[in-house]
Design a protein around this nucleic acid. Structure first.
Lengths: 160, 160
DNA sequence: GTAGGTGCAAACAATTTGCACTCTT
DNA sequence: AAGAGTGCAAATTGTTTGCACCTAC
């Protein structure tokens, strides 16, 4: 995400009002790279502004998303929609155990489709996701503490 | 997905019973390439077996998914979890207007991470998603009929 | 002053679960 | 016969909405 000031003026331009709630949400998001869910944003901002409501967090995230200042992340986990503060094209490294996502900001050459492969689709963008196990989750002790998660042993082979 | 018979014997091997409900669900899935949701599977199979319950469909899809015979699809749409009957590694071509997904069964060379980029992750697999607009959705009339969907004009530029 | 924003509670939608009954094995 | 599976209804979870009050502009 850009700086707070850039963002605030963008929102003003689009006719949105700068409320204290929106300000605190944006301040949290600006330096956040963890692809949080609405609930996670709510937890963090409500420690700074205890009376903020979930509704406001949900509404604000949806509005930012509609404006293109925030990108919904496709995610196999069940924890709800996650948001990406990086709206530039990039790729993801995803831990199948703890669902941590790391952004990969680089291009892969050759990652494009021939006209036949595109089946008439007008291609707008593309994104790669690398599935793996993060360093923290590679130690058995750590895996055991991933509440609700057991890593399928079959999944622990090398890349297919 | 493989043939019905292969699937049935696999399930038997794993100790699952072959009920009429599971049979009809599998028969539907075997030749399905549309990445359906549980609800869509339910709609289709309930036309063949009107008394089947959603619970059974949901349970069966989850079991097949746990067994690795079905893969959950990462999907930006809000229509619920979708299932991929192809469990081999492959890529996706996704229509942002109507959410149609087409499988792309080929490899992209160079789509791999250096050790530094992998940040200590043990990589298991990877998948690319190409976002675009399918032929049906490229005609304005068709776009207009996509209930609940408006394609953001900004999104209609060429690939970034 | 006024339209837009907030926050409560209620509505919704997708999925899971508890449980009595049924059917595959 | 025994235990897995089914299907109903109820519970859960993530998210949106209706609406009265509030506040940034």
């Amino acid at each position: 995400m850009k700086s707070i000031d850039t963002l605030l003026s963008r929102l003003r331009q689009r006719g949105l009002r700068i409320t204290p709630q929106r300000r605190v949400i944006l301040e949290f998001l600006v330096n956040e790279e963890s692809h949080p869910t609405a609930e996670q944003v709510y937890q963090r901002v409500s420690s700074l502004m205890p009376d903020i409501s979930r509704t406001t967090v949900y509404n604000t995230l949806r509005e930012l998303s509609d404006l293109g200042e925030l990108a919904p992340v496709q995610d196999l986990s069940q924890d709800g929609r996650r948001y990406d503060t990086s709206t530039e094209p990039h790729h993801h490294l995803y831990c199948v155990a703890c669902h941590t996502i790391i952004d990969i900001h680089r291009d892969f050459e050759g990652m494009s489709l021939s006209p036949e492969e595109a089946s008439g689709y007008q291609i707008l963008s593309h994104q790669a996701t690398f599935y793996g196990i993060c360093p923290d989750c590679q130690s058995p002790a750590s895996v055991a503490t991933q509440a609700g998660w057991t890593v399928d042993p079959d999944a622990l082979n090398s890349e297919t």
